[in-house]
Design a protein around this nucleic acid. Structure first.
Lengths: 187, 187
DNA sequence: GTCTATACAGTGATAGAC
DNA sequence: GTCTATCACTGTATAGAC
């Protein structure tokens, strides 16, 4: 019998999706085994620290993705092209609002206290990277900080309400408004 | 031995706080018995439907509170005084960002699917009530809808980030910005 | 590296005494 | 209306065969 052998990197996105859909407490090992087609034994081979390690690795993975695809461009590339790029990446990453933000979801219950620094760093870096880009685009620092915070607030709030209302168009509408609002500072 | 006899209405806020802190899955009956000083037997006396009924009753309670204190004023009172009143109530209800929104938290995992209509109705009514107030304040309907959505998005996103960053000042800052933004339409 | 079998604490829920 | 005792089940985690 042929058996598909998985690498850890193949499993992570599968497990991530379970956490995303069910939350930390809701993502039971049985749900995870069902989704990955891996037994508990195998899961513990990859993640000796169990469920908590799985979540930690996944959060790190999410963070790395955002660093590569969003934060570093904001920090290094030409500001407005990086910002334009951010909107595209955000829209596809969150699947137009059908996918939630794991960092945000974990922040809303006591799961936050397990992963305090990971969650905090993610949002701090996002806000600071966007603000820095705006500053490089000649927006005054104080104003840039404010717009950046409002933008990340808008993205997270938009994702939440998109799910709460079960309305796919809601997140798109939120993004459109945010883009319009930030574009005022374009020359 | 004197025993304090509880009424259902006394228990609800205690149980609500457990759900708020731990989420639906995290709020185990043992945590709830500990917080209420009531045995499982007593809890099932008040809530024969168990945990799901507890959450449903609590969500209904939250909804009723918002209807009385925020939605109806927005729908009936002088628009700008109702909106001013909303900001005050929101700030104290969410304890300047230290308390999360149960409706929002439940929306972010599969708990949403247990309470779809309750969550949906809450946010729909809030958005529509605020928009209606703005329309009565002579803001064009389309613009009013947009501002209203942006405002509720801002409140929810602000609550989320306030917790994620563990920064009490964040929610206050968000509220200040939202108030400033909406006040542009004041005459 | 994958599995099955198992341990054992905790889960939501019920029965029945007081 | 409150409790204790107990239920069946699921939770995370581990041991050890292959």
């Amino acid at each position: 019998m042929t058996r598909t052998v998985f690498e850890k990197s193949d499993i992570i996105p599968l497990v991530a999706e379970v956490f995303r859909e069910l939350g930390y407490e809701g993502a039971s090992l049985s749900k995870i085994t069902a989704r990955t087609n891996l037994s508990k034994g195998s899961l513990y081979h990859f993640f000796p620290g169990g469920k908590e390690e799985m979540a930690a690795v996944i959060l790190d993975n999410v963070d790395q993705w955002f660093i590569s695809n969003i934060f570093e461009p904001l920090e290094k590339s030409e500001p407005w092209s990086a910002i334009d790029h951010m909107w595209q990446e955000v829209d596809t990453y969150f699947q137009s609002g059908q996918r939630i933000c794991l960092m945000g979801a974990f922040a809303l219950d006591e799961t936050r206290d397990r992963f305090t620094t990971a969650i905090q760093q993610y949002f701090v870096r996002w806000i600071e990277a966007l603000s820095a880009a705006l500053v490089r685009a000649d927006v005054p620092k104080e104003k840039a900080d404010q717009i950046s915070e409002e933008t990340i607030v808008g993205i997270q709030g938009g994702l939440l309400l998109s799910r709460a209302l079960n309305d796919n168009s809601f997140f798109e509408r939120t993004l459109t408004n945010l883009i319009q609002r930030i574009s005022v500072y374009r020359n």
